[in-house]
Design a protein around this nucleic acid. Structure first.
Lengths: 282, 282
DNA sequence: AACGGTTGTAACACAACTGTAACAAAACTA
DNA sequence: TAGTTTTGTTACAGTTGTGTTACAACCGTT
């Protein structure tokens, strides 16, 4: 009944620019294009909604501290324990997003911890990065065999460790944040903020663009209206779920009506009744 | 960039990872099967239903051959290409389960390939292991940033490579296959919410889909109408038991009447008089 | 102040889906 | 074989979910 009588909480909405306006200035939380920055910091924060939690299991204080400092600097939340038992307790209390595990521990061996973690359902899929003294290949193989995800030799480069931590965390969230997304002949460039189909440039309104971006980030997967609302409109928006439908309609129109002619192309967006929408090759 | 460390004999590997619960925030009651497993190779075969396919992108013939030999010996199916273009073509033709990518390629650089692969929806989640000459740390960081999953320095140990290949595939299995249910040539994807028989996509109504999902969760097992009612309609529904029959009928129709023709395929759903229904290969 | 592009909502139309009842056809029992 | 129980099949009316359109508010620009 009441047409937009409410005040927009944030005045941060950008509208019409000529060519392809978009979310550039519009600091929408979840539509951030991939940044060329080195560590995944801001990126990971937005993906988890909180700094990823890393558990460091390392008995040599100096090294532990080094790792902790380094990761903290990159926006991770770290906890350090020096012994295997403590590690298991810490995990019991709160399951971390990633574990950095020294192989040579005083009491319970790294391998034992690894095995225990893999045995439990809650921790089965938590990535484990082993750290061990130089080239003990047998150890390394053993570690992989027990279900470790990655392996770093001491002495290691902090950059390398960072990179591996980022990679491991990225994997748990399957999507790699690339700035080019392709599905069939649909190409979305999250950096240039452009979309084209079959080489032909399309014009999308900002919301349409973010919607398409959300869909193309996980192609084939069905996204519910709620999920899209939080991705496209932000977690704290009071927009009706049906609004998504209208924007899907607009997006479809923009994608499928090539040129100005009345011709209609096959549809990329699939409606899944009772569930939501997904994008896939028609 | 020649030397490799010697080939250690053993091919013994184990992997003890099960599936992790798939979060389906959209649909109604869904549950995921969890299987236990032990041996990696036999396991990999059974998970994929075929030997995992590995694409090796490496211009130095000797090294390529060495890797190929080694992986083949361990039950992987390998394809070798020497250039970036070829790699992209090969992937176009058939998406491999894993890619081993040399960083230093003659024409198109490894990084470029990596980027291209990450852009395309079909290859976005294929794990990539980079291989590069001695500690070019900058390269490594770059690689991870572009979405590589792992990194191996030349000269590398074949055992290490094997271990990393296994670990990467194990991860794919965990994250990727968790939401796939298969019975015969029937495949249900709980994430994409799709069902196909013999590769042919089928259309199911929501209730039919949930019903099939319930049946496929425990193939071969007979589920009573009550049990199906609670799984599909929820524990607190006041739906007649006979309604199940009607939906089974609809589901059968959808599954067995391929295409639009009048032809009828063998039936996957078995009626057990006095007990209920079960799904199994016809 | 007017304007063109954009956005969220409401309202209606339409197609798809759902549960039930009723009858037909098996399957079992005696 | 006749009688009984269980399942298959069909039709239908009510319900729900989506597509579509129109519209007023909004924003930045002119």
């Amino acid at each position: 009944m009441t047409p937009l009588s409410r005040t927009l909480g944030t005045a941060s909405r950008t509208a019409g620019i000529g060519a392809l306006p978009a979310a550039a200035r519009d600091a929408r939380p979840l539509s951030t294009p991939a940044k060329a920055s080195s560590s995944a910091n801001a990126d990971d924060r937005s993906r988890w909604g909180r700094p990823p939690r890393v558990l460091i299991v390392e008995d040599e204080q100096a090294i532990a501290e080094l790792i902790r400092y380094n990761l903290s600097k990159n926006g991770y939340s770290c906890e350090v324990v020096g012994e295997g038992d403590e590690a298991l307790l810490a995990v019991e209390e709160q399951v971390p997003d990633l574990i950095i595990l020294d192989w040579m521990l005083p009491e319970v061996s790294g391998i034992e911890i690894c095995r225990r973690l893999r045995a439990r359902a809650e921790t089965r899929s938590v990535p484990i990065i082993m750290v061990t003294a130089r080239g003990e290949e047998a150890d390394m193989l053993r570690g992989f065999k027990e279900g470790a995800d990655d392996y770093v030799r001491k002495p290691f480069s902090l950059n390398e460790l960072n990179a591996r931590v980022d990679a491991a965390l990225r994997r748990t969230r399957v999507t790699h944040q690339a700035h080019l997304l392709e599905v069939g002949d649909l190409v979305l460039d999250a950096e240039a903020l452009t979309v084209s189909r079959g080489g032909q440039r399309l014009h999308l309104a900002p919301t349409e663009f973010r919607l398409l971006h959300a869909l193309m980030t996980s192609p084939g997967r069905v996204l519910s209206r709620d999920s899209l609302l939080s991705q496209v409109w932000g977690l704290d928006s009071d927009v009706e779920a049906r609004t998504v439908d209208v924007h899907v309609r607009r997006l479809r129109k923009a994608l499928n009506s090539q040129g100005g002619a009345g011709e209609v192309l096959p549809d990329y967006i699939r409606t899944v009744r009772g569930a939501g929408y997904s994008i896939e090759q028609p």
